[in-house]
Computed example of a mutant assay.
Amino acid sequence: MPKWRIGYRTLKTAVGAALAIFIAQFLQLEFFVSAGIITVLCISITKKESVRASWERIVACIIGLGYGSVIFEVLGYHPMSIAVLFLLFIPTAVAAGVKKGVVTSVVIMLHLYTYGNVSIAIWINEIFLITIGVGVALVMNMYMPSAEKILICKQVKLEECFEKIWQEYASFLRYGDNSWDGKEIAEVSSFIEEGKSLAMKNIDNHFLRHDDYFYHYFNMREKQLDVIESILPFISTLDRTVIQGEKMAGFMEELSQAVTPGNTAGYFLIRLNELREEIKQMELPKSRAEFEIRSSLFYILHEIEEYLLIKKMFKPDPKRTRTVSGKRLNRDHNRRDTN
């Protein structure tokens, strides 16, 4: 059963609707309750979405008032006129790219039907209702809670999973330990999906700056996860008695300790080339099994290189890198205290 709670969006909707109705009623507008309905419809999850939706509703309402005025005056004020009005208005709103304003416009157009006539005073009344409803919603939507702390938390947890995955790969190469259930791979995938979605909302909550750091970060990790998953079957084919497998395990353990938002790819690319040269200096394979092991080693090296190049192309944010690194240090300190 979902937990009962009052979220910030619910609170904004309640306060905004009440405020819009109060203003409209204070101005003695007809159908003042409709101002609250318009505010509720315009409350959105991001600032940019709020502006887009508000603009669509204003344009749609103006179009609706125009259609309603003409159709009701020409065909009369009866139900068949409403059918004709909707048949013409809805396709027009969709073609004009303001389909989100259809429901709001219906409320306004039915006001004309209720009046039974069209006049300048009625138009002014309706425009005031639209302005109050949309305006209050925009004011309410100016407050959006920052998602940065949540994004940083997901970033830290994701990197903990990456660290665990590389450690488990190394453990298998070194000891042949196959007790790992691979749950961290599924967790990383979940963190990435949630992180990208939240990062997109965070971008839409900034008007003056395009803060897409977190989106690019989670996108980068998604590409790296594809690489990690691709080498898993090949690691399972390696014979742990091969000395290169032992060195590969050491390299992966070192890699696991460097999973941070910062960019250390350059150092590891050098280490990777050294390891590749060592494997090239090995004697040629003498059996099919040795050939398959050698092929697996080169494939893994190639994929790890791709993993590092993906990170090398990512541009970290120094400020956020320090923040996340600080959280990791605190986590490691707490871990040592409990050991």
Rank of each mutant, 00 (worst) to 15 (best):
R331F: 11
S295C: 12
T237E: 09
F268I: 04
I108T: 03
K47R: 12
A93G: 09
K196T: 14
H216V: 00
S296C: 13
A96S: 05
E159D: 12
R5W: 04
L297D: 05
E160T: 13
W166F: 15
F218Q: 02
P2S: 10
R174H: 11
F268T: 07
F207C: 05
K201F: 06
K247G: 12
T260E: 06
I192G: 01
F128L: 15
V51D: 01
G133H: 05
V156H: 13
E148A: 09
G326N: 12
S179M: 00
V103W: 04
R320T: 14
Y8H: 08
I279M: 09
K164R: 11
I304R: 04
K3P: 00
E184F: 08
K312I: 00
K3G: 00
L11N: 02
E246I: 14
V106P: 00
S81K: 05
L208G: 05
K223C: 04
I270M: 02
V156S: 15
A289N: 08
N125S: 10
L255Q: 02
E229Q: 15
L19C: 03
S171H: 06
V84I: 13
A20L: 12
V70H: 04
V40R: 08
K164M: 15
M80I: 13
A83S: 15
E73A: 07
H333V: 14
Q257S: 14
Y8A: 09
G182D: 02
H78R: 12
S34P: 00
E292K: 07
V84F: 07
S171A: 05
K48Y: 08
K286L: 11
W55L: 13
Y77L: 04
D212T: 10
L232T: 12
N141D: 11
D317S: 13
G262H: 02
F172R: 05
L158H: 09
M248N: 08
